[in-house]
Design a protein around this nucleic acid. Structure first.
Lengths: 154, 154
DNA sequence: CGAAAATATTTAATATATTTACAATTAAAG
DNA sequence: CTTTAATTGTAAATATATTAAATATTTTCG
């Protein structure tokens, strides 16, 4: 059972290292963002949903549309909106044009919360990436985009 | 409410883009790995736990140690080991030296499964990163490592 | 028009994660 | 050595995610 002749060599090494470093970086980043959002009783999914609704404007978004933008299932959106509604940050509104549709809309309290959180959040992202200079950030963005193009084909 | 004077400019732009591209890349990667592991009735957490136990050897690992290595809570390990035990891949063994400790150990079936999955998994990681040449992978690894160093200080 | 297909939301069962609280055991202090 | 500390695993409540199935409403088309 031990890993005697199991060392990763040559071509495989860089592939494994790339995946490991990506994973570690995201773990650290998610932890940082979660700690920040917790100060406002928000989680990352809640924050993402609020941001989508904020940029969508007054009419809000159909739950299905919100799910597509957040890349999560419709069933999950039901629960997420339930919790945001319970927090008083979102309301459900029927769509006058299609009675199958329910639109999620921000409450005034949610807009106020976002105005408080956004500048601090922006600042945190700057701090989080401050160890890279602008040129390095551009290189990283370019390499990640290239990697994504390959991943999308699989 | 609309985003009139909310555009992200200058220094902030690269920070936000960096975080967005990191997130998108990990989303794609996690999706690819999840789809692969699903062929073996495995999830990423289950696979990670099996790998830790595989490299730990015959005696397995105390549940608390496994939790530390996987960066998840002890309570979560309890449930994860429950499910792996139910799948017949892991057994719980009491530690003769410390009666507080329960060690998770792989079953022969788990070892056999790992021997089947590992080569395919290695291959998938190579494919997943094939859109970057070795030099680009090295640059990406270097930039991610540098980013991590900054993140760890926050 | 009216049956069939498509779309939208919810519910139920499950997986993975967290925090808090607790029981059992060990380690440490005096 | 015995009282106190810390450690380990588990349980309960909650958050987030999934798939599959049920329900309600359009749409489509023969």
């Amino acid at each position: 059972m031990p890993p005697e002749n199991n060392q990763i060599q040559g071509e495989g090494y860089l592939a494994v290292r790339t995946v490991i470093e990506l994973t570690r970086t995201m773990d650290l980043l998610e932890d940082l963002l979660a700690r920040h959002l917790a100060h406002f009783n928000l989680s990352q999914p809640k924050f993402n949903a609020l941001m989508e609704l904020y940029y969508a404007g007054e009419e809000g978004l159909p739950l299905s549309e919100l799910g597509e933008r957040m890349l999560v299932s419709r069933a999950n959106i039901t629960g997420l909106i339930d919790r945001l509604q319970r927090d008083g940050l979102v309301v459900r509104a029927v769509d006058p044009k299609d009675r199958r549709v329910i639109r999620a809309q921000l409450t005034p309290r949610a807009v106020q919360l976002i105005h408080g959180v956004l500048p601090l959040h922006m600042n945190l992202l700057k701090q989080a990436t401050a160890s890279l200079n602008p040129e390095e950030k551009e290189t990283l963005i370019r390499l990640l985009t290239k990697l994504q193009e390959g991943l999308e084909k699989l």
